[in-house]
Simulated assay, not measured.
Amino acid sequence: MSSEFNSEKESPGFMLWQVTNLWQKAIRTALEPFELTHPQFVLLFSCKWMNEHNDHTSITQVQLAQYTQMDVNVTSQVLRTLEKKGYIERRPHPTDSRANVISVTKAGDTIASQAVQAVEAEDRAFFSSLGHEVEQLNRILQQLTKR
C-alpha cells in the first residue's frame, strides 16, 4: 500500500508532527532551568490562569483536564508530582466528594510566572518566521481544536 501523497510535505499530519516535535524540543529547553516538564508547566500555569480568571472559584482536576485537553489520569499523575514539588495543593471539593479542588501555592505561582515568560519568549522566537501569518495559524489551530 502506498501513500496518496507524492511528498511528505503534502501530508498535513506529517508536517504537523515534525513542527510539533521541533516546537516541543524548544519548549523543553526553555523549561529546563525551572525543572518542569512541559505537561507540568501546562497544568501549573493553566491552574493559575483558571483560578485568576474565575474569581478564584474552585477548579477541579476534571475541569483542568478538560481545559488543557489532557487525559484525566495523566492530569492526576502530573498534579501528584506538582503537589510533591510544593507547587499545588489538592483538597476535597466542598460539595462533590468525588472531586478535588486544585489551587496553586505561593511557590507554584512564582515558578509559573517565571516559566511562562520563558515559554512565551520561546514561542515568539519559534514562530517569528511567520510574521503576521501567526494570526492565521492561530485561527487554523483553533478550528482544529473544535473537532
Rank of each mutant, 00 (worst) to 15 (best):
M1C: 04
F5D: 04
S7C: 12
E8Y: 07
K9E: 15
E10T: 13
G13K: 12
F14T: 07
F14P: 01
F14H: 10
L16W: 13
V19P: 02
L22S: 15
L22H: 14
L22W: 09
W23V: 14
W23M: 15
W23A: 15
A26V: 06
R28I: 07
P33G: 12
F34A: 10
E35A: 01
L36H: 10
T37R: 12
L43H: 10
L44S: 05
S46R: 02
C47Q: 06
C47Y: 01
C47K: 03
K48F: 01
W49Q: 06
M50T: 07
M50P: 03
E52C: 01
H53D: 04
H53W: 04
N54Q: 10
N54F: 05
D55R: 12
T57S: 08
Q61K: 11
Q63T: 09
Q63F: 06
Q63S: 14
Y67D: 11
M70I: 15
D71A: 08
V72K: 13
V74L: 12
V74M: 09
Q77E: 08
V78M: 06
L79M: 05
R80D: 15
T81Q: 15
L82S: 02
L82T: 02
K84H: 14
G86C: 01
G86P: 00
G86Y: 00
R90I: 07
R91E: 00
P92L: 01
T95K: 08
R98F: 09
I102A: 14
G108T: 00
I111D: 00
A112H: 04
Q114K: 15
A115M: 03
Q117R: 15
V119A: 13
V119P: 06
E120D: 00
E122V: 13
E122D: 13
E122F: 08
D123M: 01
A125W: 00
F126W: 09
S128M: 01
S128C: 02
S129L: 14
E133M: 11
L137C: 03
L141K: 04
T145G: 00
K146I: 03
R147N: 14
